[in-house]
Amino acid sequence: MAHDAHHAEGHAHAHWDTSIYPFIISFGILALAVAFSFKFVYHNGFAAILSLGIGVPLIIAGIAGWTSEAMGKGEGLSYGAMGWFILAEAMIFVSFFVSYWYTKLHVDVWPPAGNIELPRIMPLVMTFILVASSLTIHYAEHLLHLGNKGAFRTWYLLTIVLGACFLGMSVYEWSHLIHEGFTIGTNAFSTVFFSVTGLHGSHVVVGLAIFLAGLPSVLRGDIDEGFMRTAGLYWHFVDIIWFFVVSQVYYW
């Protein structure tokens, strides 16, 4: 918070801190929810696009404004907070896995009809890439800590590239499977397969988005270590979750 308590002292009409961006983002999210209803419940594509057209810009503007307003004013508490947030995130995956096991152990026939052979090699390569990116970001952090900004920048960029490769391979694999007629609606297994890999993929996207949001500061060289540690923590989490995803949906 920019403001100090004693600043308010003395003034009869002390200034109260405000920020308009949380408000803007919230109503942007409302528009997204309404858009979903328009599209899927009332089958009104036009209204859906309209509402998306309101919501998405609001959210983007909100996030951009927020970032520029708050950059560099953090109190260094985000690392601890990220730990709590990851607990909540992990529970989403836990619920998916538990419902998967519950279903799988309850039915007489598993896998249900309609399955196809999943690729075996590709997931291993993807695992390798993701683990590598976890190591590169860890090394980057280390370099930043030592103050070696140039090398840090290289390893940081390398992490982003590896993450992007991982995403690319996911997309390739999905389109391949869908092409073969294995879609999210085929049966209960396909539902789990696409939703769990999709959920993980969305976390990779968020992780990359955090890195990209930090990229300008990295290039300028004024990135702070707190941000790097927090972003790195999230990325390690995304990496660890992948082990569960890969072992449960591909090899079990």
Partner: peptide, 11 residues
């Protein structure tokens, strides 16, 4: 079928 038996064991 395997799932069923395992489940029975847990139960």
């Amino acid at each position: 079928m395997k799932g069923k038996r395992m489940h029975e064991t847990i139960r």
